[in-house]
Design a protein around this nucleic acid. Sequence first.
DNA 1: CTAAAATCCTGGTGGC
DNA 2: TGCCACCAGGATTTTA
Length: 265
Amino acid sequence: MPELPEVETVVRRLRKPLIGRSFIGVDAYWANSVPTGIKNLKKNLPKRKIIKIERRGKYLKFVLSDGYFLFLHLKMSGDLEVESAKTKSHPHDRTVFKLNNGTELRFRDPRKFGRVYLVKDELEVVGKLGPEPLESSFHPQVFINLFKGKRGRLKPLLLNQEFIVGIGNIYADESCFKAGINPKRKIETLKENELKKLWSAIRSILNKAIKHNGSTFDFVYRGGSFQNHFSVYDRKDEPCKQCKTPIKRITLGGRSTHFCPKCQK
DNA sequence: CTAAAATCCTGGTGGC
DNA sequence: TGCCACCAGGATTTTA
């Protein structure tokens, strides 16, 4: 659900109301949501100012004053809203950040998988992450080199955030379709020209999804419209948009996986 | 090493 | 209508 395009959309939406604001307090209602500790949050977040907001993989990264970093991960069902402190709170608000202008940043998360980290060393949170697929320095050869020495099937590797960041279940399937590659393919059988196609497919799918503000799916993430452009995801038994063959749905690496058996080899 | 399964969670859904 | 088993997703952890 929230994958790179959705997180990017949220980051862009939050910048205007939040940059330059300071925190004056925080309430956390679900201890597991805060691996770095609620005490640490309550002690060290107040008075810190939000200098900038960035995205690293699927994490939202708040650069704060005094060398602190606030990382938020939406996981499956998380969403963020900036609302007046006077408006009624929502039953799924797990962490509420109070700001110095009468508004609150509310981390709303029905399934409680979302996470909040407050650290001084950002590598504690994002130290092991792989490269950003949309960075201008992410050339095709950089992508191809990542595959050296890797084993196993293609899709689980694409979902591995230590391999490459930002790709989740939806965009993995969509990228494989666009590249014409079966997600079950063994890594070692992938030819260089196929990897180039995959590189291009990943970038164009992610960029297109960002243009559409991500994908609205289930009851959680709202606002985006890229779900109207899915080629394979959630289209089991529906005709392939290229060849009319029914889209297949299998389980791969524990995730639902959609592909066209004719167009993807 | 890969790979599958279990774990964390709850709202929505399909079956009866 | 109500009940319930089951599924979805990201990431980590455990087991094979």
